[in-house]
Deep mutational scan, measured.
Amino acid sequence: TCPLCKTELNIGSKDPPNFNTCTECKNQVCNLCGFNPTPHLTEIQEWLCLNCQTQRA
């Protein structure tokens, strides 16, 4: 489950994953609780959960 919103993560499912791993804290959170803060920078593959995003802001 997502630590932030308690959504079930579909780990091991044949569906596309509905979660990602935060590059900062390494927690697995669902796609609604994390995002790529710099989608225009292709050389930085970063994906932050809302916790890390808030701490950085």
Rank of each mutant, 00 (worst) to 15 (best):
T1M: 10
T1K: 03
C2S: 01
C2D: 02
C2K: 01
C2T: 01
C2M: 00
P3S: 09
P3Q: 03
P3Y: 07
P3W: 00
P3T: 10
P3K: 05
P3F: 05
L4Q: 12
L4W: 02
L4G: 13
L4K: 02
L4N: 12
L4M: 13
C5H: 07
C5E: 01
C5D: 02
C5S: 01
C5L: 00
C5V: 00
C5A: 01
K6M: 04
K6P: 14
K6F: 10
K6V: 05
K6S: 13
K6L: 03
K6G: 03
T7Y: 04
T7S: 08
T7P: 05
T7W: 01
T7G: 11
E8Y: 01
E8S: 08
E8I: 07
E8Q: 06
E8P: 08
E8M: 11
L9P: 06
L9E: 08
L9S: 10
N10I: 09
N10Q: 11
N10V: 05
N10C: 04
N10E: 10
N10S: 09
N10M: 12
N10P: 11
I11M: 12
I11V: 10
I11R: 08
I11S: 10
I11F: 09
I11K: 08
I11A: 06
I11W: 04
G12L: 10
G12A: 03
G12M: 12
G12S: 10
S13T: 10
S13R: 05
S13W: 02
S13C: 03
S13V: 03
S13Q: 14
K14R: 12
K14S: 07
K14P: 07
K14G: 12
K14E: 05
K14N: 10
K14A: 09
K14V: 12
D15M: 09
D15C: 07
D15W: 04
D15P: 04
D15K: 10
D15V: 11
D15Y: 14
P16A: 03
P16I: 06
P16S: 09
P16E: 06
P16F: 12
P17F: 05
P17G: 08
P17K: 14
P17N: 06
N18L: 06
N18K: 10
N18F: 06
N18M: 01
F19W: 09
F19M: 15
F19S: 04
F19I: 15
F19N: 12
N20T: 13
N20A: 11
N20L: 10
N20V: 13
T21R: 14
T21M: 15
T21E: 12
T21I: 09
T21D: 09
T21K: 15
T21N: 14
T21H: 11
T21A: 11
T21Y: 14
C22K: 01
C22G: 01
C22W: 00
C22I: 00
C22M: 01
C22L: 01
C22F: 00
T23D: 12
T23S: 11
T23E: 10
T23A: 14
T23P: 07
T23M: 13
T23Y: 12
E24Q: 07
E24A: 09
E24P: 02
E24G: 11
E24F: 04
E24Y: 03
C25K: 01
C25H: 02
C25T: 02
C25A: 01
C25S: 01
C25E: 00
K26N: 13
K26S: 14
K26Q: 12
K26H: 05
K26D: 13
K26L: 14
K26M: 15
K26G: 14
N27M: 08
N27H: 10
N27W: 15
N27G: 14
N27R: 14
N27A: 14
N27V: 15
Q28W: 07
Q28S: 11
Q28A: 13
Q28D: 03
Q28M: 15
V29F: 05
V29H: 08
V29Q: 05
V29P: 02
V29G: 06
V29N: 06
V29S: 04
V29R: 07
V29W: 07
V29I: 05
C30S: 03
C30Y: 00
C30L: 00
C30R: 02
C30D: 03
C30P: 01
C30N: 02
N31S: 13
N31T: 06
N31W: 06
N31C: 13
N31K: 14
L32R: 15
L32H: 13
L32D: 10
L32C: 10
L32Y: 05
L32P: 07
C33W: 00
C33M: 01
C33S: 02
C33F: 00
C33G: 02
G34V: 10
G34E: 04
G34T: 00
G34W: 05
G34Y: 07
G34K: 01
F35T: 15
F35S: 15
F35L: 15
F35G: 15
F35A: 14
F35K: 15
N36L: 10
N36Q: 11
N36A: 08
N36S: 07
N36W: 09
N36G: 12
N36T: 04
P37G: 12
P37F: 04
P37Y: 03
P37L: 10
P37V: 14
P37R: 12
P37E: 14
P37C: 12
P37M: 08
P37D: 15
P37K: 09
T38G: 15
T38A: 13
P39I: 11
P39T: 11
P39R: 11
P39W: 04
H40N: 15
H40Q: 09
H40M: 11
H40F: 08
H40K: 09
H40I: 10
H40S: 15
H40Y: 07
H40G: 13
L41V: 12
L41T: 14
L41G: 13
L41C: 11
L41R: 15
L41E: 10
L41I: 15
L41F: 14
T42Q: 13
T42K: 09
T42R: 13
E43V: 06
E43H: 01
E43T: 08
E43L: 03
E43A: 10
E43N: 07
E43M: 06
I44A: 10
I44P: 14
I44K: 15
I44E: 14
I44G: 12
I44D: 03
Q45T: 06
Q45C: 06
Q45N: 11
E46C: 04
E46Q: 11
E46L: 07
E46I: 15
E46T: 08
E46N: 05
E46G: 10
E46R: 08
E46S: 07
E46K: 09
W47T: 06
W47Q: 08
W47V: 13
W47R: 13
W47P: 10
W47A: 08
L48M: 04
L48V: 06
L48G: 03
L48P: 04
L48Y: 08
L48A: 09
C49E: 00
C49Q: 00
C49Y: 00
C49S: 00
C49F: 01
C49N: 02
L50H: 14
L50I: 06
L50K: 13
L50V: 14
L50R: 15
L50Q: 14
L50M: 02
L50C: 10
N51A: 10
N51V: 04
N51I: 02
N51T: 09
C52A: 00
C52V: 00
C52Y: 01
C52I: 00
C52S: 01
C52P: 00
C52Q: 01
Q53W: 03
Q53T: 09
Q53D: 14
Q53L: 03
Q53E: 09
Q53G: 10
Q53R: 14
Q53F: 04
Q53V: 05
T54L: 02
T54E: 15
T54I: 03
T54G: 12
T54W: 03
T54K: 15
T54C: 06
T54F: 01
Q55H: 04
